[in-house]
């Protein structure tokens, strides 16, 4: 039981958004589709939801082939980057929308028993959901009276109301400011631990993916670069692209390595250490960034804590020796390194 995407190809004119794309997203997990803008991740999400149609390939959701199904029959909850709130409906009515559509008594007169029973059930469920997203006191407001973060929480409650088989979020926090974004992603993680619905979210923010997801699918140029847990992706990147996209990289001795994974000392302690001169020191809060020009002509960025830098005795102009720390993730640098943007 899961989302299975097989051989999906999607073109927009000459642009190939997805090229024979295959991925299996396991049930009950929180999966991030991570990649640069225009890499095809949003297109994939919209194809899974049935909002876009693939040129070729198939999608099955929890064992049901959904390739030919329209969006309203796929049983997926979708959360949009710009909330897509129903502007003319109150918060409670927004959340109730999916339930009202599904209610059996919808076409019966207001006094029919079935309809009254539905109404009571929907009201109860809406109250529960508003409680879950901490919007109970805003039930009778219009969306225009809510902040961005509140609107997105409302949109999430609306999507969860119909108890979808999967929840899809397209850059859900992309339109929010940095602080709210951070709060909401922690909240999403906790929410997922409570409701356990299979959740897939699209993001281009590696920190967001690393922090929230159980599993990350790195997508670039319409293809999967790597799939794995956040730890695995960070520690064992499959290639230079994944390494570059998940964090800062620098180049020492023909190897790509993370700037905080470099051992710096003023005496040659280890064999194979690279000799260089500190060209620039920059302090940002607790962190010191040293730019070292090696004798081979490489410009290496080293990150270390302020305490560490002081202990080593780093100053501009001093000679230092650099070695990647043991166990650091390294990837051979290709002659033409692909863009990590």
């Amino acid at each position: 039981m899961s989302i299975e995407v097989r051989g999906i190809t999607k073109r927009f004119g000459d642009f190939v958004a997805l090229d024979d794309f295959n991925v299996l997203l396991p049930s009950g997990q929180l999966t991030a589709l991570l990649g640069p803008s225009g890499g095809g991740k949003s297109t994939l999400l919209r194809i899974i939801a049935g909002l876009d149609r693939a040129d070729a390939g198939s999608v099955s959701i929890e064992g049901v082939d959904a390739t030919g199904l329209p969006a309203q029959k796929r049983d997926v909850g979708f959360v949009f980057q710009h909330y897509a709130v129903f502007k003319h409906l109150t918060v409670a009515k927004n959340v109730a929308f999916g339930l009202e559509i599904r209610a059996h008594g919808g076409l019966r007169p207001p006094w029919a028993a079935q309809r009254r029973a539905d109404r009571a059930r929907i009201d109860r469920r809406v109250a529960e959901l508003l409680e879950l997203v901490h919007l109970s006191q805003f039930a009778d407001r219009l969306p225009s009276q809510l902040s961005g973060g509140q609107r997105q929480r409302m949109a999430l409650a609306r999507a969860l109301a119909v108890e979808p088989k999967v929840l899809l979020l397209d850059e859900p926090f992309g339109a929010l400011d940095a602080k709210v974004r951070k709060e909401l992603r922690e909240w999403l993680r906790r929410l997922h631990d409570e409701v356990h619905v299979t959740t897939v979210f699209v993001t281009h923010d590696q920190e967001e993916a690393l922090e929230v997801a159980d599993e990350i699918v790195v997508i670039n140029d319409g293809r999967v670069e790597q799939i794995g847990t956040p730890d695995r992706l960070y520690d064992e990147p499959a290639n230079d692209f994944v390494m570059g996209f998940l964090g800062d990289v620098t180049r020492v001795n023909g190897q790509l390595v993370r700037p905080h994974d470099i051992d710096i000392s003023r005496v040659p302690l280890l064999a194979g250490a690279v000799e260089g001169t500190v060209a620039r020191l920059l302090r940002v809060g607790f962190e010191v960034r040293a730019t070292v020009l090696t004798d081979d002509g490489e410009e290496v960025l080293v990150q270390l804590t302020r305490t560490h830098a002081r202990a080593v005795g780093l100053e501009e102009g001093v000679t230092v020796w650099l070695t990647p720390v043991t166990g650091a993730a390294t990837v051979p640098a290709l002659p033409s390194m692909r863009s990590a943007g």
Binding site: L51, A71, V76, F80, V85, F86, H88, A155, A159, V162
Partner: peptide, 24 residues
């Protein structure tokens, strides 16, 4: 956006038009 959201919540074309598009 709103129409797509309505679709993903299970509304058909007529329901989407009557409940979402027309009021807007």
């Amino acid at each position: 956006d709103q129409e797509q959201a309505a679709r993903s919540l299970g509304a058909g074309a007529v329901q989407t038009f009557r409940r979402i598009t027309l009021p807007s």
